[in-house]
């Protein structure tokens, strides 16, 4: 696997390839990135020029994995819950930016936008959301990076909310837009799962900005990046809206 065993002519070719790759869009570079090109070429038995095709293939497999996961998903199977004594303290902050960039949303004039395949498009204030039936759960948040942490989230069952807005529950997707520029989307069966909560609190307190004030969708059946924070808009659709990380290459279903 040593790159310095690569014959010099091959290495010159690889350097040329590397220069060409650098000129391409950053998105295309993502499979090689910092990987030694020699190592990749030896592994695949072909030069990295075939890489966009490889990327297309891998993304096709990822879409197939979405379908497999949708098939494996049991809408009645619950994620494990834990006693409050097992809550991870402090619960880690995680986002695609540093903690000092966390958006500070003003709760008083906040209104949640609702659109798409819904009967009632009125914009929800925090007071109205807090007036809906509330529940809470202690569950494990699993990050795509591999670490996990146990936290306690409270709020409205998302199914209850979707019923209140008269959402078309036969639609395929729910999309989310967030005040930090994040966006993601989920499948309807997960949206209707009993543990999927539109959370307004963390550990009994109003959801703090670092955990997603004013609102985070919490799904213990999905990886962290599928759980949007600082939600400003929710829309019901039959066209897959993708997502911030998903468009870069993370698996769309992202379920656990």
């Amino acid at each position: 696997m040593k790159t310095d065993q690569t014959p010099s002519r091959e290495r010159a070719d690889l350097l040329k390839e590397a220069e060409r790759l650098i000129e391409r869009t950053p998105r295309r570079l993502f499979l090689t990135g910092a990987v030694s090109l020699g190592g990749l070429a030896m592994l695949t038995g072909c030069s990295p020029s075939a890489e966009p095709r490889t990327e297309r293939f891998l993304r096709a497999v990822s879409r197939w994995n979405d379908r497999v996961q949708a098939g494996l998903f049991d809408p009645t199977r619950l994620a494990p819950t834990y006693p409050e004594s097992m809550i991870t303290r402090p619960f880690p902050f995680n986002a695609f930016y540093k903690e000092d960039r966390v958006p500070h949303v003003d709760g008083t004039d906040y209104r949640l936008e609702v659109s798409g395949l819904v009967a009632d498009r009125h914009r929800w204030s925090l007071e109205e959301l807090r007036a809906l039936p509330q529940t809470s759960q202690v569950t494990r948040h699993i990050c795509v990076e591999g670490w996990s942490a146990i936290g306690k989230w409270g709020g409205v069952r998302f199914r209850t909310f979707l019923e209140r807005i008269g959402a078309d529950l036969t639609a395929s997707f729910i999309g989310f837009k967030c005040s930090d520029g994040y966006h993601t989307s989920i499948d309807m069966p997960t949206a209707l799962h009993p543990q999927t909560l539109l959370t307004l609190t963390y550990d009994g307190e109003v959801l703090p900005p670092r955990y997603g004030f004013p609102m985070k969708l919490r799904m213990p059946t999905k990886l962290g990046y599928k759980n949007p924070k600082h939600i400003t808009a929710i829309y019901v659709t039959n066209t897959n809206p993708g997502g911030y990380w998903e468009d870069l290459g993370y698996n769309w279903f992202g379920g656990s």
Binding site: M1, L31, G33, V35, S36, G39, V61
Partner: peptide
Amino acid sequence: RDYTLGGWLGGALLW
């Protein structure tokens, strides 16, 4: 990193 595949976490997960 030189002996890993995927470039970044998302690429490695795809592989």
